[in-house]
């Protein structure tokens, strides 16, 4: 079997001296869609930030295409081919949708081999067609769903091999959740690997192939998403009865 695209091994992320993940292991294969589910505060965001180099790791390794990422400066990680949509949306306010999509290309487009800036922006706006007629809108004026689309689109501007989405469906109306899932499915269909965090197990089983369950900074289970969501222990855990 070939090496996974992303292999996280024994990750112990620390925030202000406190260990917030206690040895997370997970992997994403090329072209695979993987979910990391857990309640708020379970360690999903810390795991992702550890991968992106934004939260220091006390221990552990993050290998992407065989390269150790923990030795890299954080700004070099996106250039290796990882697009990251932070929790919330963290867009660049005061700037338009289009500027937000172009900024990654300006900073790292050359290093990523994105030759045609306009074509890349158009391809993202084609995907998120709802965003295309709001291209000149300043991002703080977008709706919740459009904001998430813009944040995912920004992460896609560097033509990533792996897209890390931190709760892209959080806080959205059910109809918008369905719409966004459609977009994410389309991204997966394009062959981009996706690692997606969710606090609601019912959102993801139909779009991912593998699911990890995280609780108190440790992976407690992983496997087939449809099986796992039926597991009474997992259901109880996700509903907050695990204590």
């Amino acid at each position: 079997m070939s090496d996974p695209l992303l292999a996280v091994t024994n990750n112990k992320a620390t925030v202000e001296g406190f260990t917030v993940t206690h040895g997370v292991d997970l992997s994403v294969d090329e072209g695979e869609a993987v979910a990391l589910v857990g309640r708020n505060g379970a360690g999903k965001t810390s795991t992702f930030r550890g991968i992106m180099g934004l939260t220091p790791l006390a221990e552990g390794s993050v290998k992407f295409k065989g390269e150790e990422l923990t030795e890299l400066r954080p700004e070099l990680i996106p250039v290796r081919g990882i697009g990251y949509q932070p929790e919330g949306r963290d867009l660049f306010t005061g700037m338009t949708v289009e500027e937000n999509l172009r900024l990654p290309i300006w900073t790292s487009g050359k290093a990523r081999g994105v030759e045609d800036e306009d074509a890349m922006v158009e391809s993202i706006l084609d995907l998120f067609d709802e965003l295309s007629h709001r291209r000149d809108t300043e991002v703080q004026n977008l709706s919740g769903g459009q904001g998430k689309m813009c944040a995912i689109g920004r992460a896609m501007a560097l033509d990533p091999d792996l897209l890390i989405l931190d709760e892209p469906l959080e806080g959205l109306a059910p109809i918008v959740v369905e719409e966004l899932k459609g977009y994410i499915q389309e991204i997966i269909d394009r062959g981009i690997s996706v690692l997606i965090a969710e606090s609601n197990t019912s959102h993801v089983p139909d779009i991912v192939e593998e699911m990890y369950v995280i609780e108190r900074g440790s992976i407690v289970d992983n496997g087939d998403p449809k099986e796992l969501t039926k597991d009474p222990d997992i259901q109880e855990l996700m509903q907050g009865g695990g204590n």
């Binding site: 934004l54 700004e75 867009l91």
Partner: peptide
């Protein structure tokens, strides 16, 4: 300018800027 807007992006959200490849 591109440089000017990259600086603004860094001012608005340093981590989000790092995540698109900006060296703060």
């Amino acid at each position: 300018t591109k440089t000017g807007r990259i600086i603004r992006a860094t001012a608005i959200d340093r981590e989000a800027a790092t995540a698109i490849g900006v060296s703060s």
